[in-house]
Nucleic acid binder design. Structure first.
Length: 421
RNA sequence: GGAGAGGUGCCGGAGUGGCUGAACGGGGCGGCCUGCUAAGCCGUUGUAGGGGGUAACCCCUACCCAGGGUUCGAAUCCCUGCCUCUCCGCCA
């Protein structure tokens, strides 16, 4: 969320951001309402000042045992007037708020402007393997080796759910442990294991609500949402808090399942497990001081890249254009891994800097030094990594002509085997 | 799920309708003093919104978990929600 005063003082900047992101928040309406708002505030506060003065008089009259009924009767009119002004103000502020919370974050100046075709490939790592045979897509390999059960999962939960099995399940677990261990012991993150459901407030804080309500699983009886990413519970760890400057940056990593309804995406990549309703992910979340947040983004990206480097999976980095940036992000890099069987780049990570956008929504602040005025922190997060597509890449890139899968070296201690056959 | 208690400033903790933006204590900050010294004394110490001033700053309004209500007037009374604690039940 952007600050109202900032919007008022930088309307052109905000308008450009809305345009560049392909959003359609009604900025002009907001600016007009803002003027009205301040007019009403002037009136209502004058009336209140008057009311306070007379109230004081009544108290004094009562103390002096004087009759105050006439004054009290007069005050009734003023009280009604205040009430009606208040109602009007509330209406205006509510409308302002509804627009304000739908205004997207402003892209950083380094972000390419335009639709997704303007996404920039920043770099590529690793060689795309050229096998001497026709590589199979992961669903065929997984099916043949009994690693993933598509049919039974669909029977109990519906389409686009999967159930891992045997060494498939083990591979999933191995990857989670490998990633968390890496981020904790080498990159300095603290492991957390947060709730997998959260309240509306938390979803609002990270920007999932109000725009993405349709994309989330919802539990009406308890007004809870299943998390679509660990970003939500982990970022909300510090909601409504004032952190100390010296404890920043705070780095967290968490494994959670992620639940996404993927409403409206049926027909897209439905085969296999490129897009499923429940998937595992290891996430990294940072709370940092504003001045260093873009450096922190580069480090975050490097931390995610290292997972793929250690797994020896080729990937490329995209700097997303404004039109592809999410609502809350100021800048975002996507990491896409090469999947040899599908012959496709698959997104396995998004590393974003949200600047103070989430912090303002979730009210996460810090004091630069003792006694300093609290300021909003900057929040960042990135997948490190999403599991199913990483699994896909391993299955497809490490497959042999005989239909087996070589286990990447770094995973062997976690897997206990060198080859899945 | 049932029964009860409670949510006040940086912290502890008063306050049951007007004199309370909030006693008292602690902490922080500033100053003073000082051979009883990890002591004493004095002062100060929230946030947001609106308006005014070149500015240091000043004025007004709001905020005692949140949202409603009663009232001329609410931290104080009523309702709802959220959260915490205790006991019982159930349970991985």
């Amino acid at each position: 969320m952007l600050d109202l005063r900032f919007i008022r003082e930088n309307p052109d900047l905000v308008r450009k951001a809305i345009q560049d992101k392909g959003d359609k928040a009604d900025l002009d309406r907001l600016l007009a309402l803002d003027v009205t708002r301040r007019e009403i505030i002037g009136a209502v506060e004058n009336a209140r000042a008057q009311q306070n003065k007379v109230t004081q008089q009544i108290a004094e009259m009562k103390k002096a045992r004087q009759d105050a009924t006439a004054v009290i009767a007069e005050m009734r009119g003023l009280s009604d007037q205040i009430r009606s002004l208040d109602d009007k103000l509330k209406g205006v502020e509510e409308e302002i708020y509804q627009i304000q919370i739908r205004i997207p974050n402003i892209p950083h100046e380094s972000v390419p402007v335009g639709d997704p075709s303007h996404n920039q490939v920043v770099r590529q790592w690793g060689e795309i393997p050229r096998k001497g045979f026709k590589p199979l897509p992961h669903y065929d390999i997984a099916d043949r080796l009994g690693l993933v059960d598509f049919g039974r999962a669909a029977r109990m939960s519906g389409a686009s759910f999967v159930s891992y099995r045997g060494l498939g399940a083990r591979l999933e677990r191995a990857l989670i442990n490998f990633m968390i261990d890496l981020h904790v012991s080498k990159h300095g993150y603290t492991e957390v294991s947060p709730p997998f459901v959260t309240k509306r407030d938390a979803m609002f804080g990270t920007g999932q609500l109000p725009k993405l309500e349709e994309d989330m699983y919802y539990i009406p009886g308890d007004d809870l949402f299943l998390i679509p990413t660990a970003e939500v519970p982990v970022t909300n760890l510090h909601r409504e808090e004032i952190l100390e400057g010296e404890e920043l940056p705070l780095l967290y990593t968490a494994y959670t399942p992620c639940f996404r309804r993927e409403a409206g995406t049926y027909g897209k990549e439905t085969r296999g497990m490129v897009r499923i309703h429940q998937f595992d992910k290891v996430e990294m979340v940072k709370f940092v001081k504003p001045e260093g947040s873009y450096d922190e983004l580069e480090k975050l990206l490097a931390n995610a890249e290292e997972v793929l480097q250690l797994l020896k999976l080729p990937y490329r980095i995209l700097c997303l254009a404004t039109g592809d940036l999410s609502f809350a992000a100021a800048k975002c890099y996507d990491i896409e891994v090469w999947a040899e069987g599908m012959e496709k780049w698959l997104e396995v990570s998004s590393c974003s800097n949200f600047a103070d956008f989430q912090a303002r929504r979730a009210n996460i602040r810090y004091r630069a030094f003792k006694g300093a005025k609290p300021e909003y922190v900057h929040t960042l997060n990135g997948s490190g990594l999403a599991l199913p597509r990483t699994v896909i890449a391993i299955m497809e890139n490490y497959q042999t002509a005989e239909g087996a899968i070589i286990v990447p070296e770094v995973l062997r201690p976690y897997m206990g085997v060198e080859v899945i056959r």
